[in-house]
Nucleic acid binder design. Structure first.
Lengths: 345, 345
DNA sequence: GTGAAAGCGCTAACAG
DNA sequence: CTGTTAGCGCTTTCAC
């Protein structure tokens, strides 16, 4: 592992093809306005020399990087551990790749990292950013906004400021929750409880709102706050069982929570779905298919969400580059959910 | 979102501080060989102007990018779904961040992407690469090797070619497997079965070897090939139960597989650990703590593995830059494992 | 110790 | 349509 071959430059290609650097540049960048025979010659020279453009030199003049930052805040590192993250990343990666953009991953561990991220963004290393803003009080959104980098958020940012102009992609948490509760009601259940997610995240708040939409004057004791974890689900379920031993259904804010609830239900001798029907949210396959019984849940297409985030951002950048001026902020998108019926409800 | 403020250049800072560009450059890059008062003045100007170096311009002359590619092959997308990936990424990210390096993530979906990755690497966009080579027949390792980019692999690459000079970080799969089986034997078990992982991955092969090290002349029927998935674990367990109804212990190649096995064991009325003791591998908390009973397993420190990969690579790059010449390939590292005792064995 | 000057490899006017 | 000419912002000899 020694000799790093000196890569050929435009100049070299130009010489070999017997044309000027400008012509080679044109060909390399699409070849518009160059006559066929020349194009041919240049292509051949590029091929023979194994020429690859130097991105640094190019960026220096174009001020574009064809690179997008993906910023993941993982305060509790909990969010990070589930397949969610990987799926979104995959969706993003696919879309970026399809448009020849690079994915620069920025993981933030806490307050300390915010400054670093801010600096990086302000440094103009990337053309845009995709951000997963997990918590309501997260300082990241504002920081990013200040850096002046075009951004699309994953999940509606729970931003105290006016949300105008903030582009995001989210799933229809509220609608999905409504579907879940309606399904339960359709099964003839009347004492439908809800175990919430971590309420400092908009997804949890929206799901709770959806529950309330349907259970307009629900017994407040049927709602118990939790945190999206299995352990939290267990605790919440125990609490619920104490408060309302007569409940006949549970809508859990996510599958992990539902799995915890299921376990407690089983332990305490309740049959699912006969005694208590259970619906989750997410449709995380590794979870929903492994619970006993398999979990009825609300599916959201995570990968598609990632893909859409990238698409929205890229489109915005394009427009910005061409129309230049009244650059419309890319509008937000809310993805639909679907109820997946399994055995638990 | 309109006015993109024109970022200040070295020139601007120099003017404001009343020095030359060269001096500013020196200060920005460590400030060696510049007198204190000047350093002070420059620092102040940098601060006031909010100057951030233009990485593209810098790379153009230094030929360094302070960026590392992380390449994840995810053929079945299975590997991708579990927390493994996220944890390794986190370890890598931390280490890179600590050394002011950027993480460029390259996800490959299949054959088509290989060419793209090869081109990217050859394009000299990054200073090095971290690669998770998942399968024995993966063409990626060779491709990367050819691109001439310093690389560290995650997990021993199952490379047909001579493995000399290939740097990797792995856990002691074989040793861990031995520990698992010895633990079972220490419990007085004699009919110890093994459900293998996907044998096109070195980790699975090594764990099988470890099993064999201890069970020198094991009944071959006690070994059944599987694929690291829960469903695979179920299938394998059923098969085992048919072949050897008298087995009294199972060492599963990973926790997911063990979870599947546990389920079948329960279904078929076996008590764990009384009738059959079970040990897994990985210690994936979300799994091991949720099984019934909680799973005894072999822990590996995934995050540390990621961190080490990055450290190894960065160190290699440094050396390469300084000693320049007999740049020793960074040697490989094998991390230890520990047995975590829970209720299943 | 500090400054002046020469590029790094590329694109983008501008001529021809 | 093609070539010539300036730089993009920075580092790095080389003089002073």
């Amino acid at each position: 592992m020694t000799g790093t071959a000196p890569r050929p430059t435009l100049e070299a290609v130009a010489e070999r093809a017997g044309v000027s650097r400008a012509t080679v540049s044109r060909v390399v960048n699409g070849g518009d306005g160059v006559r066929e025979p020349l194009v041919e010659r240049v292509r051949k020279a590029v091929e023979e020399l194994g020429y690859v453009p130097n991105q640094a030199a190019r960026s220096l003049v174009t001020r574009r990087h064809d690179a997008i930052a993906v910023i993941v805040a993982e305060p509790e590192s909990r969010v990070f551990a589930d397949p969610f993250f990987a799926l979104q990343l995959r969706g993003i990666s696919k879309e970026l790749t399809a448009h020849d953009n690079q994915l620069v991953l920025l993981l933030t561990e806490g307050r300390d990292d915010h400054a670093r991220v801010g600096r990086y963004l302000a440094g103009g290393h990337v053309d845009g950013a995709l951000v997963f803003s997990l918590h309501l009080d997260d300082p990241l959104p504002e920081l990013i906004q200040r850096a002046g980098v075009p951004t699309v958020f994953g999940g509606r940012p729970g931003w105290s400021g006016d949300g105008r102009g903030v582009a995001y992609v989210d799933v229809d948490n509220r609608g999905g929750a409504r579907d879940a509760v309606r399904h339960l009601a359709g099964l003839g259940r009347t004492r439908i409880a809800h175990i919430t997610g971590a309420l400092d995240q908009t997804s949890a708040v929206d799901r709770l709102d959806g529950y309330r939409d349907v259970m307009v004057d629900a017994d407040p004791r049927l709602i118990v706050e939790s945190d999206f974890t299995p352990a939290g689900g267990e605790r919440a379920m125990r609490e619920l069982l104490t408060r309302c031993p007569d409940l006949d259904a549970v809508f859990a804010a996510n599958d992990l929570t539902a799995a915890g609830a299921l376990r407690v239900l089983r332990e305490t001798g309740r049959r699912v779905p006969d005694d208590v029907a259970v619906v989750g949210f997410d449709d995380m396959l590794p979870v929903t298919e492994q619970t006993e019984p398999p979990l009825t849940t609300i599916r959201q297409d995570i990968e598609e969400m990632g893909r859409l985030m990238a698409r929205l951002l890229l489109r915005g950048l394009e427009r910005n580059a061409t129309e230049e001026g009244i650059a419309a902020a890319p509008s937000s998108v809310v993805l639909p959910t679907t109820l997946i019926r399994r055995a638990s409800a």
